[in-house]
Structures are given as structure tokens and as C-alpha cells.
Amino acid sequence: MNIVVCIKQVPDTNDVKIDPQTNTLIRSGVPSIINPFDENAIEEGLRIKEKLGGTVTVVSMGPPQVESCLRDALSLGVDDVILVTDRAFAGADTLATSYTLGKTIEKYVSNCDLIIFGKQAIDGDTAQVGPGVAEYLGIPQMIYVTKVEEITPEKIVVKRELEEGYEIVESKLPAAITVLKGINTVRFPSLKGKMKAKSATIKIVTAKDIEADENRIGLKGSPTWVSKIFTPPVKGNRQIIKDEDGSGVKAIISKLKELQVI
């Protein structure tokens, strides 16, 4: 079983603070981490490999600094990593990113059976790249997977989360899935893994390497663009009271009455 896991480097929101004056994010000095959902994607890939044999290849698109995340992935025990980086990729939206990752997988891991993505990246929250890559490669997709029920070299059965419950879905392989946090518990890197990761050479792939159509990558290949960024208005009618002699309960009761809950 040849498995590809696509990951994204994101700012660590545990370290992001909000500037109380301007109500904006203080981003300076914020370290970068593997997107939390993608850690579970790597873990699931490793677990399937341990069961069925094969390889796990981690692919990531981004600036050269993404290398550190790929080394982290290596320390967890993945077999191979590919860094897809080029100035020409800058400004890519989800469509251009999907094309770029799809092209990379097609060229370098063409025999892959399963592609795993995290549900979404915590900095963009779009959840669009997984389905976009699956479309480029023309393979089935199942999103919001909470459990891989069964996997054989030919097919996969997953449990996916819906608004009103779950659904058990079967698909032939190759296929792509996106996974939720609850799917597994992520392992810690081993000492051996860390040593290996430190000395590994990271494979770097550029727009030229993947023979990308320059009209489909980066800003040029991105139909969507940000026209405006603004801070959401702060709530107008905030009422903060100190609970004394049941004043808190009274305030909640009157609020709930006002809202016609009780």
C-alpha cells in the first residue's frame, strides 16, 4: 500500500495572542507547526502501513521553511518527504494549490493507493484542497473521516461524520480521504526517528520539475482574491457583572427570559 499524506505548515495558534487594543492577531515570533489535523493524517497513514506494508510519502507545498515540518514528519517514521516550493507558487488559492499538489503526486508518487489529508488547515479553514487534489487525479474522495473501518489493497471502508450522525462508506482504491482529529492519537517521535530526520536530505520539487502550466499555479492560477481585510466590529452591548448574593443567577434568568428560552 503506497500512501501519500499532504500536510500544511501553519502558525501555532497556541502562541498567537490577540492585541487587546487593536483586536488583531499578534503574529510576530509565532512558531510554525504541522497543521494539527494533518498530524492525524500522518498517524493514520503510518498505522495503515504498519498493517498492510508499503510506504508513506509526505508532500507539502509552501516556502522553504516548510522543511522543518517535513523533518518532523520524518521523525515520526514516514518513508519519504517532498517539499514543493517555488516563488511561482506564491499567492495560490485552493484551486491552484490543488493543481500543484495533484501534479506533484502524479509525477512522483504515481503508484499511490491512498491519499490522506487533514480535515482542514487551521489558518484558512477551507477544507477545499483535499477534494481539489482528488478531482485532479480523478479518484474518489471521502471527507470528515472519523474511522477507517476496513482497508485492503483493493478497497477502503470508512466512517464519516455528518451533521446528523455518521455514514459508513465504501470505495475502491485509489481514493482520497480527509480525517478529523478524533480518528487517532498521534504518536511521539522516537529517538531513532529524530536522528534519521536530522540527517535526511529533503527532496525539493519546483514548478519546472512538475511541468506545471504557469497559468494554473500561484496568483495567476487562482480565481479567488482577497479584496478587503477588516476586523469584525466588537460587540456593542456587553454587560459584565460580579456575582454577589445571587446577582449572577438573576442576570442569567432575566437574560434567558428576554430571549424567551424560559
Binding site: T94, L95, T126, Q128, G130, P131, R160, L162, E163
Partner: peptide, 23 residues
């Protein structure tokens, strides 16, 4: 932006090669 909408919309966007804004 439901489990179904967020599955079919990005697939469609990639197929017809147009932009999609999430959520």
C-alpha cells in the same frame, strides 16, 4: 457549508476550474 456541501463544492470548483470561497 455542511459535510455534503463542503465535499461537493470543492470537487465541482476543481472540475469546472473556477473559484470557491469556503464558509
Amino acid at each position: 457549508a455542511t459535510s455534503e456541501g463542503r465535499s461537493v463544492a470543492p470537487r465541482l470548483a476543481a472540475r469546472v476550474k473556477t473559484g470557491l470561497t469556503a464558509d
